[in-house]
């Protein structure tokens, strides 16, 4: 107990004494964490946007016309589709509804539809999937079905979209790793500088017979304190900026629903705090290592 309070006293005493170094280290941690936090928020939001785009992949199953399939056939097909576990939902669009939609689409220039006699449009199922990547498998099942005329799901577009989203995810992940490394190097370097300034002190402690851990603890407490404080301020800044900026983006991107709640605030907070503390402690411990070899 007495030892812990001694270490704490040592650590805070030297944080106060070397206030210039303390501030330099705090600012470094803060800036690195803001950048890292900003990227995290960006990644979470982008990732949510990507999933939303992926969800838009749907299969449209056009049924035969001339003759139109009977109500029994339609019901049977509907039941079959809904029994597949890949399917999230399926909506039946009747011939009449299809025509209504067409009229709605062309209501600015109704003359286009004037020549239309009867209803040539096919009925259809709109099938959305649990995992959009199963689209090929599900679409293939309609081949050879007697009442199905054509299956459309924009195969090429879907393929391109999935390639793009997976590349985008890999890129974002790489970006986070890279930034993490930059943050670690930057912070541990700053801490190393502050330790270097106290090389002589460490040397004296060794000569008096202090064990490495006796010397190390106060430094580690210093590192953790700086890491924690820098990260706390960074968390506040990142979260406030996030809510302000996303609000603005949402106002300007009205054609897309920006998922405001895509960012898991608790995770981001915990990640930043943990990274701050771990880097602070590790930076001190590693920075000290070469001076302890006396």
């Amino acid at each position: 107990m007495g030892r812990i309070s001694f270490f704490l006293k040592e650590a805070f005493g030297s944080l106060r004494r070397n206030y210039f170094m303390t501030i330099a280290a705090l600012v470094t941690v803060f800036l690195s964490m803001v950048v890292l936090g900003g990227v995290l928020v960006f990644v979470y939001t982008t990732s949510a946007l990507l999933s939303e785009v992926e969800q838009k992949v749907e299969i449209t199953v056009y049924l035969k016309t001339d003759p139109d399939p009977s109500q029994e056939q339609i019901d049977a097909l509907q039941a079959e589709i809904q029994s597949w576990k890949e399917v999230k939902s399926s909506t039946f669009v009747s011939k009449e509804e299809a025509l209504n939609r067409l009229k709605e689409d062309f209501k600015e220039n109704p003359e286009i539809l004037e020549g239309l006699t009867g209803n040539p449009l096919p009925a259809s199922f709109e099938v959305s999937l649990v995992d959009p990547k199963t689209v090929d498998t599900v679409a293939a099942r309609f081949n050879g079905n007697a009442s199905v005329d054509e299956v459309r799901y924009g195969k090429e577009i879907a393929d391109k979209l999935f390639t793009f989203t997976s590349q985008a995810r890999n890129f974002l992940l790489g970006f986070i790793v890279l930034l993490g490394i930059v943050a670690v190097l930057l912070i541990s370097n700053t801490i190393r500088l502050s330790i270097f300034a106290r090389k002589r002190e460490v040397e004296i402690m060794k000569l008096v017979g202090a064990t490495n851990w006796f010397i190390r603890w106060p430094f580690i407490i210093e590192g953790v304190t700086v890491g924690l404080f820098g990260a706390v301020v960074a968390v506040v800044v990142v979260l406030v900026l996030n809510s302000v900026l996303i609000g603005r983006i949402r106002d300007s991107l009205t054609f897309m629903t920006v998922p405001l709640d895509a960012v898991p605030y608790v995770s981001v907070t915990l990640i930043l705090l943990a990274v701050g503390v771990v880097i602070g402690a590790a930076g001190s411990g590693i920075g000290l290592r070469r001076f302890l070899k006396i």
Binding site: I204, V208, A210
Partner: peptide, 19 residues
Amino acid sequence: PYLRRNIGCVFQDFKLLPN
């Protein structure tokens, strides 16, 4: 460190902790 605790050391430049 345990060896050094049994050897008192005095130096020309005192080697006192300045703080």
